[in-house]
């Protein structure tokens, strides 16, 4: 039984590490800020949760498990809110997304000035 739990745990940890690195690679490779949000979404959802779940199987049933579950819940609730706030700030700050289909372009967003606040 313990061996099965260990195997499941290592599997989840390996999956989480792989997903984290994939997200990091996407953060580098993808072309603009809106696409990069999807890569950050990978890190926030499956990457972090799989590692936390793997740690849960390592810890066994104790208060540590509850805390890991709380961390997952916090990340799952706060992650999309933060991403949406950032997407909205980027949209209103004039960061136009690179689009593939020209007919789907959001005209208003395009016209909003190029007063992008660079540092």
């Amino acid at each position: 039984m313990a061996v099965v739990l260990d195997i499941v745990s290592w599997g989840l940890l390996a999956l989480g590490s792989f997903m984290l690195m994939t997200g990091g690679l996407g953060l580098i490779r993808l072309p603009d800020v809106f696409s990069r949000m999807h890569a950050a979404g990978i890190i926030d959802t499956l990457g972090a949760s799989a590692i936390m779940a793997g740690l849960m199987f390592q810890a066994g049933l104790s208060i540590v498990t509850v805390k890991l579950g709380l961390i997952i819940i916090f990340i799952m609730f706060t992650g999309p809110t933060a991403t949406h706030a950032l997407a909205r700030a980027a949209g209103q700050g004039g960061a136009a997304p690179q689009l593939d289909k020209p007919e789907k372009k959001n005209k208003k967003r395009q016209e909003e000035g190029k007063a992008s606040s660079k540092t």
Binding site: H38, G41, P80, T81, A87, R88, N106
Partner: peptide, 26 residues
């Protein structure tokens, strides 16, 4: 709904205006 959209990678809700949600899809 908007948070579920953002939570699934590949779609991000950019703006919510009444019942219209602007979505960026990868």
């Amino acid at each position: 709904y908007a948070n579920s959209i953002t939570l699934t990678p590949g779609t991000v809700s950019i703006e919510v205006d009444k019942d219209i949600i602007t979505v960026h899809a990868l």
